[in-house]
Amino acid sequence: MQLNTPSSPHIHSGDQLSQLMQRVLWALLPAITLYVVFFGWGIIVNILIAVLAALTFEAIALRLRKRPLGSNLGDFSAVLTAVLLALALPPLAPWWLLVVAVFFAIVFAKHLYGGLGFNPFNPAMIGYVVVLISFPREVTTWLPPEAISGESISFVGALSATLTGTLANGINPDAISMATPLDHLKTQLTQNHVISEIIHDNTIFGQLAGSGWEWINLAFLVGGCWLIYKKVIHWHIPVAMLASLALIAGVFWLIDSERYASPLFHLLSGGAMLGAFFIATDPVTASTTNRGRILFGIGIGILVYIIRSWGGYPEGVAFAVLLMNMLAPTLDYYTQPRVFGRGRNS
C-alpha cells in the first residue's frame, strides 16, 4: 500500500489569499459606485488602466524572477494595489500618470523587495508618492463633482480625456478642474482667510466636508466595517487612526474653530477613510500585533493631521502610512502579546 505521509495538521479551513483580496475589492464597491455618481466615469477608466498595467508589470516581474505566474497573478494582490492607486489619483488623470504610479508600486515597491509579503512599504502609497512628487500638478487637480461643474463625464468622455487630454466634447478637463476641498481650505488658510469665510457660499463644500467627498468617505467607512465584520481586517488600525485624527483635530478646533477645521471635516475629507480601512490596514506593511496595530494607527492619525495642517502637501495619508511602515517592525517587537502562562500570573 502506497501511503501519503504529510505532517500534521491534516486539515485546513480552506481560506485562501485570493479570497481575502477579493473581499477587500468587494468592500470598495460602494465607494466606487458613489464615486461614479458624483464624479462620473473617470474612476472606472482609472481602474481599468491601472489594473491592466498592474497585471502586465506583475507578470513581467514574476517572469523575470522566475516565479510561477498563475498562482501569483491569481492572488488579486496586484489588482488590489491597482484599484487603490486608481482611487488615490484624480479621476481624469492622464493614462501615463497611472502607469508610472503602478510601475513604481509593483516593480519597485513590491518585486524589488522580494515580492508579496516582503515589501516593507505599502506599494500603492509608494507609487502615489512618486507621482505626487514628480507631477504635483497632475496629481492634485481634481474635477469637482458633476453637480458643480455641470459637466457629466461619460465613459467615452473619460476614456478620451485620459488618453488624449480632452473630453469627448472637446473640453479640456483642466478648464473645469479645481483643487480638492482639503487643498482649497489649506491654500485659503495660508492666505489668512478664516474658515467660515472660506466655506461660506463655496459649493465644493457640502454638509459635513467636501461635497460628494463626504458621501464617498462614508461609503469607505461602510465597506471597512464589513471587512471588520468578515474578519478580513482587524478593527485596531482604523479605529486608532480615526480616533487619534478626530481627537487631535477636535483639540485644535476647540482652541480656534476659525483656523482649524472640524474633526468631522478631517474624517470625511481626502483619503481619511480609504486610508484607515484599506491602506493602513495592508497587513504586509502594518504592525501585526494588536497593541502594535493600535500604536500604528495612532501614529498615522497624528501624522495625517500634522501634514494636513502644517506640511507642504494638502493630504498626508500616504506620507503618514509610509512613515509608520518604517516603525512597524520595531512596534511588533516591543508589543508582543503576553504568552499563555507567562508574565502576569493568575
Binding site: 489569499l17 481575502l20 494582490s77 509579503g117 497587513p283 501585526t288 500585533t289
Partner: peptide, 10 residues
C-alpha cells in the same frame, strides 16, 4: 503563498 502578515494565525 507568501505570508502577508494578516495575523489570522495569531
Amino acid at each position: 503563498h507568501a505570508c502577508i502578515r494578516c495575523g489570522s494565525c495569531a
